[in-house]
Design a protein around this nucleic acid. Structure first.
Lengths: 363, 363
DNA sequence: ATGAAAGCGCTAACAC
DNA sequence: GTGTTAGCGCTTTCAT
């Protein structure tokens, strides 16, 4: 039996044909009107109003899959994050979402931690239910799947990593400068044994990093680089705490300060120091990295390196949409500046004058 | 000119027809093999291998839009969160993702804060690029769009809220019990003026809440409910901080303890108390709510009400997939228990015995 | 100014 | 066992 009946009975959702029938026009007209192409003087006001009324009456919404199939685009941009734990990305994604919406794109987030050895978490993305993808996390950024996606025409932007593939853009903050500023701040405050706690990563980085800045600052001050002062730990508060435990353990020639991978790990560090009865900043100084909200609420408040997180998100979206809409850009890599925020965890920010101001933006 | 040429040239992605041509079979066979329906003795091993080889050679991946259109399903479940800020959801989503993957679904997250008055942030979801949706946040849960989605056949699960629509399931933790336990704990510790700081929400709740538990505990202890002790604030650390400021302001008959909406706001509370030179727990006690990681790292560590966040995520997915696959369930609402975790922010958890143990799970 | 028709890439029914 | 065919719901020439 041929069924001319409305599809709504089967799926619960009215189709453009349903609307067309109700309005007494063809499906093509529905499309024209609802996509605003009616403005090109093509559809009469009368028809337009009929269509809009019919669509409203039926509660019609275009089928996403059909539209994507036909147009070869989804208007969705996906953000791949290693974890939802870190409020850092919350700020980045929020700004990205705002920017994306202005261009007619929706943003969705997929938490995916690519584990070394295991199959890459990104493989399921191949279906490409999105037009573009912004990837954070070193392991995710270096996944071979990304290059495949790029080869298929999906626009790809890597956060904080540089890809050998020229079609993959990157948007980053200047981690090296941040590492330098953090370490330099501690040196200026008189510290000579300065530890650096970093994230345990299983892929080699592609860009100059916190550690490079740390080394540059030491070198500049004529301090020897001591590998035993560089620890890796899990990127969590507990990880930061453990690293400090280790630093304070027996047999260690204790540092007097630590530059932590991020504010989250710095919170853990403060905790460990407290447990050891050490006062911050009097007995031990801590510098964080990121500038996320929590740093203002710790005791003591965190001195940290602030990232322009909103700008990072906005820029990532703009780079992505540029690529998507084939506006060729000569800029393959965007590098954003960071700035030192002096709070309490290193002490006397206001009394001791730094010898010179590292490059930074000031409000 | 008719083009029989491979589509790969146009989009960068090979189609099933391309694979079929290379393997010397029909597109239907490709589908059969690649979807594992070959196991039904229908395809010869030889053909199967040819197909697999051809697909691998081309790097073929099925087009998501086409497949969704044909099958009327996407295998994607979307999580709508009011914000990515709160690590609470990080735990929930992680567990949900694990559970979903076991059933062959991918999870994506959309941060959407429905603002009262403004148009509902969920409206853009109408396209339904997903099979089911799990919604958190009161404003999101009460959005009329949800009922439309449900009517269209999208499975919907609300977190912490009950919908009048019977097709919308709910998965919640027992907030009322948590409120009771938190308040009761403070009462048992000798507090008589106990404040409650809650989130500023613009929609009426649909379920018994922290506040109800708070009132029940007061009542049971013969303490009068004092509306001036119940404050609303923004659900952030800063919001918690401000609320406490207000409580300590001039002209206030100060409480000696506060039960905070969640751990995040409790962190802000600790900060404000510190600024006022009050010692926690000696001068003022704080109970949090949630049990997120940060509570272990504050000074003092937070006494809190722990939620089974993993179970919440897992259950939400299972309820959703049950609905999706039309396994009818008589359970429309799932209620999960909470438990008190005594740390430092209320003092003497170990010395003072609660008069009776509220219902809770113990590990 | 509008309609007819083709087709995006896939899969489910039905032939053979 | 495998190929043929139809069609999911939409948009987009092209005709009228």
């Amino acid at each position: 039996m041929r069924r001319g009946a409305t599809n709504a009975a089967q799926t619960g959702a009215p189709t453009s044909a349903d609307v067309a029938r109700l309005a007494g026009v063809s499906p093509a007209t529905i499309s024209l009107v609802l996509n605003g192409r009616a403005s090109k003087v093509r559809i009469s006001d009368e028809t337009r109003d009929k269509v809009i009324a019919a669509a409203a009456q039926l509660g019609y919404t275009p089928n996403h899959a059909a539209r994507s199939l036909r147009q070869r685009r989804t208007n969705i941009i996906t953000f791949v994050l290693p974890t939802l734990d870190n409020p850092y990305f919350s700020d980045v994604v929020r700004a990205a979402q705002t920017a994306a919406q202005q261009h007619g794109y929706a943003v969705s987030v997929i938490p995916a931690k690519t584990k070394p050895g295991e199959f890459h978490a990104l493989s399921f993305l191949q279906g490409a239910a999105f037009d573009g993808i912004i990837v954070a996390g070193r392991e995710n950024c270096t996944a071979p799947e990304l290059r495949q996606l790029a080869a298929r025409g999906v626009a790809v932007v890597a956060l904080q990593e540089q890809s050998p593939d020229p079609s993959i853009q990157s948007v980053s903050v200047d981690l090296e400068a941040g590492g330098y500023m953090a370490t330099r701040h501690l040196i200026d405050l008189g510290h000579r044994r300065i530890a650096h706690v970093t994230e345990r990563l299983h892929e080699p980085g592609t860009r100059r990093d916190r550690l490079d800045g740390y080394r540059r600052a030491l070198e500049e001050a004529g301090l020897a680089f001591d590998p035993s002062l560089v620890l890796t730990a899990e990127n969590t508060m507990a990880g930061g705490s453990k690293a400090i435990e280790q630093l304070l353990g027996p047999g260690m020639q204790r540092p007097t300060a630590a530059f932590m991978y991020n504010d989250q790990m710095a919170v853990g560090a403060l905790h460990a120091l407290r447990l050891h009865g050490l006062s911050v900043p009097d007995d031990f100084a801590i510098v964080g990295f990121d500038g996320v909200a929590i740093g203002q609420f710790t005791a003591p408040a965190l001195t940290t390196i602030d990232h322009p997180r909103e700008e990072l998100g906005r820029l990532a979206i703009e780079a992505l949409i540029g690529a998507l809409e084939k506006r060729p850009s000569d800029v393959r890599e965007h590098l954003l500046p960071v700035k030192l925020i002096v709070r309490e965890s290193c002490g006397g920010g206001k009394t001791l004058l730094p010898r010179r101001q590292p490059r930074t933006r000031t409000r």
